[in-house]
Design a protein around this nucleic acid. Structure first.
Length: 82
DNA sequence: GTTGAGCGTT
C-alpha cells in the first residue's frame, strides 16, 4: 500500500517526509513529484511503508496534523494513472 | 497550492 500526503508544504523534501513517517514504521520509499514543466514541487507526496499496519497508523496519526506550517492530508494513495 | 513516470504515436 502507498500513502498519499496532500496539502504538503513546498519546503518539504523527500527526506523530511521520510523522517516523519519513519516515526511510525519503516519507510521503504518516499516520492515527491515535481511539476514536469516547471520543476516546482506540486505540494503532495507518496510514501511506501514496510507494513500495512504501520501505514494505517501513520495515516491515523498524521492526517490533519500540522507540519511545516501546513495541515497535512494523509490518505491511502490511488493507483497511478487514475 | 490535493493522487506519482516516461516513452514516444499502438
Amino acid at each position: 500500500m502507498t500513502i498519499y500526503i496532500g496539502n504538503l508544504s513546498y519546503d518539504a523534501t523527500q527526506d523530511n517526509i521520510k523522517e516523519v513517517f519513519a516515526e511510525y514504521g519503516t519507510v521503504k520509499k518516499a516520492h515527491v513529484p515535481t511539476d514536469r514543466e516547471t520543476g516546482r514541487p506540486r505540494g503532495f507526496a507518496f510514501i511506501d511503508m514496510g507494513l500495512d499496519s504501520e501505514e494505517e497508523k501513520a495515516i491515523a496519526e498524521l492526517d490533519g496534523a500540522e507540519w511545516m506550517g501546513r495541515t497535512l492530508k494523509v490518505n491511502k494513495a490511488r493507483p497511478r494513472g487514475n
